[in-house]
Design a binder for these strands. Structure first.
Lengths: 242, 242
DNA sequence: AGGATTATTGTCAAGGTGACGATAATACGG
DNA sequence: CCGTATTATCGTCACCTTGACAATAATCCT
């Protein structure tokens, strides 16, 4: 049984998860509608308080599973940053450890109206102010998107948005959605296939889509083992935002 | 008066600071000798518990000032990551928000033997196991060094290790100390002076050292305003570790 | 079958990097 | 005072990567 040292100053500690995915060519974020105060009825990042005996990463994983109804949420989960504890919750000081999930577009279970349920929303709307997120969640989302954008430059994490196997075109679509830019398919193909320890040809090809069938790739073992490592070296350069 | 919401699970929250500097051509870290249990007598990162009414960044700043005896510690302070709360403190669950300070080599006040005082130690020794840091501080230090190394690749933060004004040679010495490599002085000079929004020539020159006097530079306004922004684009590439 | 669409392979010029020569300007030892 | 050691700065050159874009291949759709 985990003990809590007494006689030490103590704070409520929460975790929040910014779960990002690519849907219909644009970046989306998982949000829940709050059923209780504070911010009752407003949209917020999925999250909750850390319970005793778990590390913050485990708490983030647990909350994500609880609020999506998905037992083993796919994708890459990493810690983002810690916010607070001052002035971010009307109930008082609350520290929150934000996490970032980069995941393929998985279906969330839509619960009945009596349970808090999560759904995907375009990041552009969430940051546009039209959705009015609870707490400081808009700021956290903004940081998360920036982190995701810069991670794609040098790490193999774009693949976390795809399934186990994917085509170069799908991978490029991830970059275009996250960066909000267009990339030249030919130059992207050259960089993606030419980078050592990044992709592995499965030998199979995709089918059913429009156009010529594309070769299916998966992450190289090295890239899967260390998802944060800089394999794109020199990095893939992010073009002008327009 | 900041309130703490009741009826919420609660954790002791600490901050730790990995303060790095360059001394005698090698990377050093600020450590304190613990005067109380747990880990009494062992070396540890400066840090302490977050007190009510302050954000974690403020707490890190305050602890740093308290343990060094320096009122306004110079350099660049940023959040590193959050660790725990499970299994890192023998007293029980304690969450710690680690911070990273990149600073010029400032003198620490050496207090009497009855007060906890900080001093600089070579990172190589601290990570070599010879110093046996308290808690999970060796792991935190390892992460901090890796963060610092990668930040130098694309951000102007190397200048945080220097004073207000510095020569290209001093800046290069920072890179060599942090990365543990040698860099070609001519190519480094070309990259440093050729990168827009990075350095600003002060017009003055250094003197007194060996060799030809060097031009003194300072950080460009743009780089000082956003110390984390990627100005080195494409990044400065880190050579083989040996 | 013909057109549309996406994948892949190349070509080429421009820009950045790594390796290294050459010169400049100062401190120091004799 | 002079030659030497040391560090700063400027240049050169081959090589690599990128950005722009032509050309061909292999499917789907109508």
């Amino acid at each position: 049984m985990p003990s809590t040292p007494s006689r030490l100053p103590c704070l409520p500690v929460a975790v929040d998860v910014v779960a990002l995915t690519v849907r219909d060519g644009s970046l989306n974020v998982l949000l829940v509608t709050r059923l209780i105060d504070p911010f009752k009825g407003r949209l917020a990042l999925p999250g909750g308080f850390v319970t005793s005996g778990e590390d913050v990463g485990e708490a983030a994983s647990r909350e994500l599973a609880e609020e999506t109804g998905v037992e083993r949420v796919p994708g890459h989960l990493e810690q983002l940053a810690t916010y607070g504890p001052k002035g971010r919750d009307p109930r008082g000081d609350v520290l929150t450890v934000a996490h970032l999930l980069l995941a393929p577009d998985f279906p969330v279970l839509v619960a009945g109206s009596d349970a808090e349920h999560a759904d995907w929303f375009p990041v552009a709307e969430a940051l546009g102010g039209t959705l009015a997120l609870a707490f400081d969640h808009e700021r956290i989302l903004r940081d998360a998107v920036e982190r995701a954008r810069s991670k794609l430059e040098y790490s193999p994490l774009a693949a976390a948005f795809c399934g186990e196997e994917f085509t170069i075109g799908q991978l490029r679509a991830v970059y275009e959605a996250v960066w909000g830019t267009r990339l030249d398919p030919r130059n992207f193909h050259r960089k993606a296939t030419g980078t050592p320890d990044f992709l592995e040809d499965t030998g199979r090809v995709s089918s059913g889509d429009a156009g010529r069938p594309a070769a299916l790739f998966r992450l190289a073992d090295r890239a899967r083992a260390e998802p944060g490592r800089a394999v794109l070296n020199p990095p893939l350069m992010r073009p002008r935002p327009l």
